[in-house]
């Protein structure tokens, strides 16, 4: 009620003195040690790079040839390879995204702490961490070793990677949902599945759609990289073109990838704006 509650600080001792924001790290010696240590480390780290200038000079010319090739991309001389690679990539992207999403949804439900019991929560979080910890390239090398060269390994890799991405972000959205809306559905006597369908799903649908399209985009880009380790798709075509120093074909492939990614990005923007 009154402004003069005694909590140990006298107003008179505060007046007339400047105010400063309390520092993030309170102890001054620790603060300065961390700051100076960081600067010294950065100086040492940068000076450890060795630059061979004559090598750079030779390399510049090769780099220039690569860049110049973009002014004359060669779509025709390897056109059948490019079409085959793109078809494979698109198939890989679409199938792996669909399968990845289908597996992600139950895992996301299990990985949301507000709706899953502890043992299921831990199991689902474990699956997600594994999927996120392993880089696509490493997983692809493993699957190529098991299933051989070709798009099957790429499809499996991308499905696996989609799970970690989608299930984690979707689970976070489920955890942020409005609890009372879901509670209201539960209070009608709905079964668990009905509760998910009426109380949870409508709340996470925009996020699910947005993330799925975003993942489609990522999977397409990844499919181009996976070809470099033998997992099929346009990446394999790209790799071959590099090996043959056919920079015109390389440029053509890169341009196609960029155009497709931009188109997907544009499409996802439109769809996400419409789903609210």
């Amino acid at each position: 009620m009154s402004g003069s509650v005694d909590i140990g600080v006298k107003l008179s001792s505060r007046l007339g003195k400047p105010w400063r924001k309390p520092p993030f790290i309170n102890s001054a010696p620790l603060r300065w040690t961390l700051l100076i240590g960081t600067v010294v480390y950065l100086i040492l780290a940068f000076s450890s790079f060795e630059v061979n200038w004559s090598r750079v000079y030779a390399g510049l010319e090769r780099g220039w040839r690569f860049i110049v090739a973009f002014s004359q991309p060669d779509f025709t001389s390897r056109s059948s390879d490019i079409i085959e690679g793109m078809t494979e990539s698109v198939i890989m992207t679409v199938t792996s995204t669909v399968v990845g999403i289908a597996i992600s949804i139950p895992i996301a439900l299990g990985a949301a702490s507000n709706i899953a019991p502890m043992p299921i929560y831990l199991a689902c979080r474990f699956i997600i961490s594994i999927s996120r910890a392993l880089n696509e390239i490493i997983v692809a090398i493993l699957f190529v070793a098991i299933f051989g060269f070709g798009p099957l390994a790429g499809f499996l890799t991308l499905s696996f990677a989609t799970i970690g991405f989608l299930a984690k972000l979707l689970a976070e959205d489920i955890e942020d949902m409005n609890k009372v809306q879901a509670e209201a559905v539960k209070s009608t006597g709905a079964s668990w599945l009905q509760w998910v369908n009426f109380g949870v799903q409508p709340q996470i649908m925009p996020r699910l759609i947005g993330l799925s399209i975003y993942r489609l985009d990522i999977n397409f880009r990844e499919s181009a990289v996976l070809g470099l380790v033998g997992a099929g798709g346009i990446g394999a075509t790209l790799n071959t073109a590099f090996d043959r120093y056919e920079f015109g074909t390389v440029a053509a492939i890169l341009i196609i990838i960029i155009v497709v990614v931009m188109a997907l990005e544009y499409l996802s923007g439109i769809i996400r704006a419409r789903v609210k």
Binding site: N178, V180, Q181, E183, A184, V185, F198, G199, P202, Q203, M205, P206
Partner: peptide, 9 residues
Amino acid sequence: FQEYALVER
């Protein structure tokens, strides 16, 4: 409910 708790979407 207090805040109606309709499923908004």
